[in-house]
């Protein structure tokens, strides 16, 4: 770790779910400690049930943790903050708004003036390649295009940190690869700090600077892997020796995490 103050810090974070009234609460996350540097692209990976999505929701302020805290620029996250952008796994694009309406939703909610909103719409719809579809309703768009709208909408809100919860989980492999490239391009432009939840090894390696491997039941940090592959990364990266080596390292880390996981 370097001397820079972390963008996001998670300290002593434990979370329990009360499944049924009578039973013991289930510990889904146990004593998580993480520091995420500004501008870093970090993935959280782990088998299903390791609490990675829960961790992300806690980081966003959508869910208050049972114990511990998340710090954003040294300040405790106490609730939802538009500075912490969130991309959901499900299709969360508002179907009753056009592409344009979706992109300017956040700025409008924050009271950004009309002219500036128009500029944001133009810029971000171009960045995700949807300039021609600005007036279209989501029902006319494919799943991949809706995800582009979702990304443009979040970026247009100029967040400081981007939290993404398996955003491409529902897409086919080809579309997924294209969208990963889109995310990297947007990220290169904005240099946001990104926390990306996935269960896909290739995705984690392709996107990240750092991959946090979680063990399950209860969810805890098993290992932290640095991915040193040169940037910018492109389709050729996926077949490079560095990529395969990084993937193997991550695979080993995941095997170790699986061995740690409870039943």
């Amino acid at each position: 770790m370097n001397v820079e103050a972390p963008k996001l810090a998670i300290r002593g974070l434990t979370h329990r779910f009360q499944i049924e009234a009578q039973t013991e609460p289930l510990t889904v996350l146990n004593d998580i400690n993480l520091a995420i540097e500004p501008g870093q692209f970090v993935s959280l990976i782990g088998e299903s049930g390791c609490g990675k999505s829960t961790l992300l929701r806690i980081m966003s302020g959508l869910l208050p943790p049972s114990e511990g805290e998340t710090l954003h620029d040294g300040k405790r996250v106490a609730g939802i903050d538009p500075k912490l952008g969130f991309v959901f796994q499900q299709d969360a694009v508002f179907p009753w708004l056009t592409v344009e309406g979706n992109i300017e939703y956040g700025p409008k909610a924050r009271g950004v003036a009309k002219a500036e909103r128009a500029r944001l719409v133009e810029h971000w719809s171009a960045q995700v390649g949807l300039t021609k579809f600005r007036k279209a309703y989501p029902k006319h768009l494919s799943g991949g295009m809706r995800k582009r709208v979702d990304l443009a909408r979040v970026f247009a809100n100029s967040p400081d940190v981007l939290l993404m919860d398996e955003p491409f989980g529902a897409l086919d492999v080809q579309t997924k690869h294209v969208m990963q490239q889109v995310v990297l391009d947007l990220w290169r432009e904005t240099r946001n700090t990104v926390v990306f939840v996935t269960h896909d090894l290739d995705e984690a390696v392709f996107l990240s600077d750092v991959v946090v491997v979680l063990a399950a039941r209860p969810g805890r940090v098993a290992s932290i892997i640095r991915v040193g592959i040169d940037r910018p990364r492109n389709e050729a990266t996926r077949v490079s020796d560095d990529f395969v080596a990084a993937k193997r390292e991550l695979w080993n880390a995941m095997q170790a995490a699986r061995a740690m996981s409870g039943n």
Binding site: I80, P82, F86, F88, D91, A92, F94, G106, A109, V154
Partner: peptide
């Protein structure tokens, strides 16, 4: 709920 959450994280009161 997903739309409510999405609106809230975008800053809607």
């Amino acid at each position: 709920q997903i739309y409510v959450d999405a609106a809230r994280v975008l800053g809607a009161g």
